[in-house]
Design a protein around this nucleic acid. Structure first.
Length: 488
RNA sequence: GGGGCCAUCGUCUAGUGGUUAGGACAUCGGGUUUUCAUUCCGACAACAGGGGUUCGAUUCCCCUUGGCCCUACCA
């Protein structure tokens, strides 16, 4: 039975990189009928906060990537801070078997040593100063209140540490590269490497799938597995997601908080689709995938080794595709997702808004949910003031006098017509009458239609004039044409 | 400095010991439509460099270069 895990640390908001790791774990687990464990790694009490934890849990749950077991379900034992007693026992075992030892070196001495190494251009490693202190002696010093950390004793003759990485193949690091690293600050204050290994063992994790930045942690953790005599899980190291300059995705250079993307109106499905393709693809030319398709086609051996730049433009495109699809599939469901973005920007008139969203003239106009209220506001709110230049700008220039004539004629045409506000059935007739006007004036389409549309919308890009007329209603259309005439 | 990882269009990528090196995003151009947008069609654009191996390397090997990651009493 395959068991994977997603172990975020609540020291920051839910990061895009964490989501991608969660996604690949999820896809791998589901593809193989396995289970994903969601564990909160909060051993760093200084930096961990409840707010971050909530953000991570909520985000992962919203994306459907929180797994089948774990902290999000409220069960005890999936938060590392709840497991200190367990780690303490393991630590004691290592100490008793002399596979770990107390180190009393001061931070100052360590720092001094590090700087000396750097100056001599040697790799800074712990010199093993305290490794020969007898366990009895060490115990006495601790009982007397002396401060000491716990280090793992790296076997001197361990040689090459190897694992068959499921993404990268055979990977080797010589144990000479490792020093006796710290696994706990005190017996009841364990550190990352110890807790990860203990948890992965206790939670019966079979596959550790994580970011490439953990490659150099892997030999250390293998050593801990070996010290306990535990069976090793499989390891797979995923390529990093990169900033535009190819450095590791960071909040200094990119938006990395998932919540920000969700708030801005990226759909979870789109985000997942996009992230899935950052480092993996099934070898076909398919670009849009449902979660089911991803699960069905995913495999670790098609995961890339090289990092992938986060290209927001492609995300925008994918998101636009999903918006189009979701409006077509079920506008009611889509509208519910849109509500948080409305924020009083336009009147909350669900039936009318849904009708507009489904109007063919609006298809493909939206890249993000957050843009939708702005796009629609022209139909509901006061006409924004726009520069005269805009109404004159069209593809084919006309003179001011001609423009005046066009707008006056347009007014006449509109005056003669009657229609119910929002009656989209009237759109064709409105269009037809306007086209008659065009031919009557012996002008090019654009010379009439551009100024009329701008007069009605005040925008460079907007729905076409007949759609505007339908949803604005006769009275408002006349008002806006007048407004334009006054400007001239 | 040390250790490790990686290398196909600007970006995400497909691909093979012999291909016109394919697709998508972006960009640019054109067509349709009722202006803008949408849509459609098209164009531009890549095997980092140098050695091998081979009849033949983008593909296999080595070196160089470049980029990145790690190098905590963070995770």
């Amino acid at each position: 039975m395959i068991r994977v895990r997603i172990p975020p640390s609540p020291t920051g908001l839910l990061h895009i990189g964490t989501v991608r790791t969660a996604l690949y774990n999820h896809l791998f687990a589901k593809h193989n009928g396995g289970t994903m464990v969601f564990r909160m790694e909060d051993t760093d009490k200084e930096r961990s906060t409840k707010e971050f934890e909530d953000d991570i849990i909520n985000g992962l749950v919203a994306l459907g990537l929180a797994g089948d077991e774990g902290v999000h379900l409220g069960t005890k034992g999936y938060r590392q801070s709840e497991r200190t007693g367990i780690y303490q026992k393991y630590l004691q075992k290592l100490l008793d078997e002399d596979k770990a030892y107390y180190c009393f070196c001061t931070k100052e001495r360590l720092e001094e040593m590090r700087q000396k190494c750097e100056k001599e251009k040697r790799a800074p490693r712990y010199d093993g100063c305290c490794s020969e202190i007898s366990p009895g002696n060490a115990k006495k010093r601790i009982t007397n209140g002396e401060k000491g950390v716990i280090r793992l004793r790296v076997p001197k003759d361990r040689g090459d540490i190897k694992w068959n990485d499921l993404v990268r193949g055979e990977t080797v690091i010589n144990s000479k590269e490792l020093d006796d690293f710290v696994i706990a600050r005190t017996i009841d204050d364990p550190l990352y490497h110890l807790t990860v290994v203990a948890d992965d063992h206790d939670m019966e994790i079979t596959h550790v799938i994580r970011g490439e930045d953990h490659i150099s942690n892997t030999p250390k953790q293998i050593l801990i597995f070996e010290a306990f005599g535990w069976e090793l899980p499989e390891f797979a190291h995923l390529p990093l997601i990169l900033n535009e300059d190819k450095s590791k995705l960071s909040k200094r250079k990119n938006k990395v908080s998932v919540d920000d993307y969700l708030k801005e109106g990226y759909l979870p499905e789109a985000l997942i689709n996009f992230l899935a393709l950052l480092g993996w693809n099934p070898g076909t030319e398919q670009e849009i995938f449902s979660m089911e398709e991803l699960i069905g086609q995913f495999s670790l051996d098609r995961v890339h080794k090289g990092g992938a730049v986060f290209d927001i433009k492609k995300l925008d495109w994918i998101n636009g595709e999903y918006i189009k699809k979701e409006i077509a599939d079920d506008v009611d469901v889509f509208y519910k997702k849109l509500v948080p973005c409305l924020k009083n920007k336009i009147p909350d008139n669900p039936e009318l808004i849904k009708k507009i969203l489904k109007d063919p003239d609006f298809e493909g106009r939206f890249k993000k949910l957050s843009e939708i209220p702005d796009e629609l506001s022209v139909l509901f709110n006061k006409l924004p003031d726009y520069p005269l230049d805009l109404i004159m700008r069209g593809k084919f220039q006309i003179t001011k006098d001609m423009l005046k004539k066009v707008l006056e004629k347009a007014k006449e045409v509109v005056s003669e017509l009657e229609w119910e506000k929002g009656d989209s059935g009237k759109s064709a007739e409105l269009a037809e009458k306007m086209m008659e006007l065009v031919s009557g004036l012996r002008l090019k389409n654009g010379q009439v239609l551009w100024p009329v549309r701008v007069a009605l919308s005040g925008q460079e890009h907007s729905p076409n004039f007949s759609t505007l007329m339908v949803y604005l209603g006769k009275e408002e259309v006349l008002k806006r044409l007048d407004f334009a005439l006054q400007k001239l």
